[in-house]
Amino acid sequence: MNDTISTPPAVRTEDLWKVYPQEPEPVEAVKSLDLIVEPGDFVAMAGPSGSGKTTVLNLLGGLTRPTRGRIWIDGEEVSDMRDRDLARLRLERIGFVFQAYNLLPVLTALENAEFTLLLRGTPAEERHRRVMDLFREMGLDGLEDRRPGRLSGGQQQRVAVARAVAGDPALVLADEPTANLDTATSAALLDVMERLNRERGTTFVFSTHDPRVMERARRLIHLVDGEIESDVRRDAGAVAP
């Protein structure tokens, strides 16, 4: 008898649909998506604009409700969760990185990065230590007291990544994180995220147009019109649906 306890997938969806009720016809942004992302994976979702990448991330993060289908995050079904429980799930298990950084302008870089820890009620000393460790890892030390308006795009995005991973989430959802960055800054940011993935085991799911991100993803999913067109694992070939 097998007595090992199997780890649940970081993400699992089953027949996931998102339909926007628009005139003259409803828009099917995501169609019957069946997806499994294993813990510690580094997945890029590519596809043309309107292919449903951002909608999938929003669905996985509980920022929008599916029209139909089910979603599990870290083994817990989230499809029918109440707003309050979804907020708790995001706070404890999911980190977000946005294309436009979306740091809170009234907080300093340090305060932005420790935002989720503040919400969790982590003691100040531990909060400070964890974020300062991240800042050192990401080359942000010395910028702690700056407001976002006084940081470059790359610095802001690194602070956003620090914010996303400061609470050690199981899953980081990143919506086109390099879209607004130059080549060198993008590469540096990808280095940071790869290292976090490797060293902390954090699962990353990106949406991207950026070929450099696609190259570095271990698994590349192509979405077209809300459906998976291809799903390729770079280290082991195509993933069975």
Binding site: G61, L63, R84, A87, L91, F96, N102, P105
Partner: peptide, 16 residues
């Protein structure tokens, strides 16, 4: 609005 959406995405409840 966008800032409220961001903090919601980061785990804030509507009450927060």
């Amino acid at each position: 609005r966008k800032e409220f959406a961001v903090v919601r995405a980061l785990g804030t409840t509507p009450l927060g």
